[in-house]
Design a protein around this nucleic acid. Structure first.
Length: 475
DNA sequence: TCTGGGGTCCTAGGACCC
DNA sequence: TCTGGGGTCCTAGGACCC
């Protein structure tokens, strides 16, 4: 917490809906709802006219239609929102080099780093005047969009303040007045306190910040865990030293989709996941990123959500590699004793994500792999007789398209990532495109294998993950 | 036909290494 | 051979945010 009110939080009012009303005069003064318009859509933004009918963000579009049937329901024009956002961020960056965008419509600005001569000092009157100037500049740069601004001695208090006079308002919290402002408020003003945490606190009689102040740090840690508990303890006292950070690197890239009716056909799910893999790869490529961990997400008809992930030895942005891993992860779920039947019972959402991002793309897969091949994998490759006993258990799943190596006994193998070798059974089918090989993983405890394998330009089967020469198929 | 899509952070357990 | 702890990586799930 600083001595001056120099952290500014800006929040554009009903942003998506406001852009629509700005661009389409016929919508001005009317209720506008932007969000998913399909059967399972939710509201992203409701204009203030629509909020009067009880329409709220995250509400299902179905319910919003029931509450306000005469509203304009729009699917959203993200390029327009991005452009408006860019104009706002440019205004803020002209005010201070330290701008931290939180989303398209929100940002922190560190006024202590400002070199704008229009900011006379960090005293409350000067900061108030300057914040009004910024609001005017935002309106001018965006052809009339309004915003709400809070200025305080910390990020937390600035964000609380920007919420106090919405829409089109400004609140500057004078240094030293934070706690009296906070005490009567609900604990839900604290970032990180959502429905689950609020309920836990309510059960021990805590609903306001004043009541939260009475709880010891140890008790809070016991209630909600170490990180959350200590953070809650300090935020209750308006203690917040988080810096405004201009550049934050992306940690993951994902694509997901909810379908209007539940899916039960595994081949269709695979098709959709592979399409999402390509979309993720495209976005990675455009951003110059690649990642090692590939995940799929599956939400069932009853909204339970499961995920599977697999970490490769080196980062990739290759749609073929991502798709291959994704297919294997789906096969793993389909083979699961619990997850398999659940999958066929109806899936409402599928998603693909890549995390463990690096800001570089490996040019030569083989070059990188040669250097850090795990010793045990090499040994396994050279001494196939030490592989596990042939399986007795029933195959737990089939993973079309994965590459398989066989040993001299005619058994098929797929190689793990530094974890030894996984036993599989395989079969080859004839298809118009040539032989198609599938394999089954026989040991459920081992089946989280790493199917990082090269494309197959010369028609031989080989595994690139731990050094290719060792594991080229004989003949 | 309740409940989007894009993220971040945290926790807990197991594997593995020293 | 037994006991043990610390650190890191990985996976799955959950809470939360806009």
């Amino acid at each position: 917490m600083r001595g001056e009110s120099s952290v500014l939080h800006l929040d554009l009012d009903a942003f998506f809906a406001a852009v629509e009303q700005r661009d389409k005069p016929s919508l001005r003064g009317r209720p506008v709802v932007v969000g998913g318009t399909g059967g399972r859509g939710v509201v992203a933004t409701a204009s203030y006219e629509a909020r009067r009918y009880g329409v709220r963000s995250a509400m299902s579009t179905r319910e919003a239609r029931a509450r306000c049937p005469h509203a304009a329901f729009l699917g959203g024009r993200f390029p327009a929102y991005r452009e408006a956002s860019r104009a706002v961020m440019a205004v803020l960056r002209a005010a201070s080099p330290l701008v931290e965008p939180l989303s398209l419509d929100e940002a922190f600005v560190d006024l202590a780093a400002s070199e704008d001569p229009a900011l006379a000092s960090l005293e409350v009157p000067a900061v108030t005047e300057y914040a009004e100037l910024l609001r005017a500049r935002v309106a001018e740069a965006t052809d009339g969009l309004t915003c709400s601004v809070g200025v305080a001695t910390s990020k937390f208090m600035a964000k609380v303040a920007s919420d106090l006079d919405k829409p089109d308002g400004l609140v500057v919290v004078a240094p030293g007045t934070e706690r009296e402002l906070l005490r009567p408020m609900s604990v839900t003003v604290i970032p990180g306190v959502g429905p689950a945490t609020a309920e836990r606190l309510r059960r021990v009689g805590v609903q306001t910040v004043a009541q939260l102040e009475e709880v010891s740090e140890e008790e809070l840690v016991r209630l909600v865990g170490t990180a959350h508990g200590t953070s809650l303890f300090h935020l209750a006292r308006a203690q917040d030293d988080r810096a405004v950070v201009a550049e934050r690197e992306a940690k993951s890239v994902s694509v997901e989709g909810t379908y209007d009716s539940d899916l039960s056909d595994l081949r269709l799910m695979e098709h959709l996941l592979v399409r999402q893999s390509a979309a993720v790869a495209t976005r990675l490529g455009k951003a110059g990123l690649s990642g090692r961990t590939i995940s799929i997400k599956v939400r069932l008809h009853d909204f339970t959500t499961t995920s599977r992930s697999s970490t490769l030895p080196s980062p990739t942005d290759d749609p073929a590699v991502i798709a291959r891993v994704v297919r294997a992860l789906l096969a793993e779920l389909a083979a699961g004793v619990d997850t398999g039947p659940a999958l066929r019972g109806g899936v409402r959402l599928l998603g693909v994500g890549v995390s463990g991002l690096a800001d570089w793309v490996q040019d030569d897969l083989f070059a990188g792999l040669a250097e850090d091949t795990p010793e045990d994998a090499r040994e396994g490759a050279e001494e196939p007789q030490e592989l596990p006993e042939p399986p007795r258990a029933r195959p737990t799943g089939w993973s079309p398209g994965a590459d398989v190596v066989h040993d001299e006994h005619g058994r098929g193998w797929v190689w793990g990532s530094g974890r030894g070798v996984v036993t599989v059974r395989f079969e080859t089918r004839e298809s118009p495109a040539g032989p198609v090989r599938s394999f089954a993983v026989d040991d459920p405890a081992l089946h989280r294998w790493q199917p990082e394998v090269a494309d197959d330009p010369d028609g031989t089967e080989h595994v690139t993950e731990h050094g290719t020469e060792d594991v080229t198929e004989p003949g």
